[in-house]
């Protein structure tokens, strides 16, 4: 049975856990969801999701536990939201540990502090989606291997690169499973 991991170091892990289970149910896919705290758990995963949270904290703990290196070496599909997106980048405007799995440069807290956090309907895959942006980053630059999935106010807010997906917003806080389903489908090569 396939296993989707949710990186469980810091952030809104349980929200991703719940919505991933819901997405699998709706897709009728028989897969497990596993909270991943150490390298042994990661070895069981066919894909991993990195939640929102503080990218500096999650990055440091990934380095400390060795999970970061293992995610890169294992070449499994990764989905990252907000802090998770920052961690997937090659470069940010701040010195911190990154996975560098997507050829992009990300600006942290790019829309401003919490006062500027916002909800806005955005477009992704040609459909409307509830965008929840909390001290959100955006993408300043992408390499040739990266497909842009969504733009808001001339800023790149979602991308895909190989089987990796990154969003600046938080689909896990919406109850809308479409982006998680897309990732699961790509990651597990399964039909919905």
């Amino acid at each position: 049975m396939a296993t989707i991991g949710i990186l469980n170091l810091q952030g809104d892990v349980s929200e991703h856990f719940e919505i991933t289970k819901q997405a699998l149910d709706e897709m009728n896919v028989n897969a497990k969801v596993l909270k991943v705290k150490n390298p042994e758990y990661l070895l069981k995963c066919d894909a991993i999701i990195i939640s929102g949270g503080e990218s500096t904290v999650i990055g440091k703990l990934m380095e400390k536990t060795g999970i970061g290196k293992l995610i890169v070496d294992k070449k499994i599909p990764v989905m990252g939201t907000c802090a998770g997106m920052v961690l997937l980048a090659k470069k940010t405007d701040y010195e911190q540990p990154l996975l560098g799995l997507i050829d992009m440069e990300v600006k942290r807290n790019a829309f401003g502090r919490q006062k500027a956090s916002f909800e806005k309907i955005i477009e992704i895959f040609g459909h409307k989606f509830e965008g929840i942006f909390i001290r959100a980053p955006y993408i300043e630059k992408v390499g040739k291997s990266v497909d842009i999935l969504s733009i808001y106010n001339e800023k790149i807010i979602a991308v895909k690169s190989g089987k990796h997906i990154a969003t600046a917003f938080h689909p896990e806080l919406t109850g809308d499973t479409r982006i998680h389903k897309y990732f699961i489908k790509e990651a597990l090569n399964c039909a919905e």
Binding site: D12, S14, G53, A116, S117, F118, E119, I134, R135, L173
Partner: peptide, 20 residues
Amino acid sequence: MLHGTEVLKKGFAKMTKGGV
């Protein structure tokens, strides 16, 4: 565009979970 909604306020707190 909406600012200061309950989702954004509670969401901010959720991002600190597991942290110090």
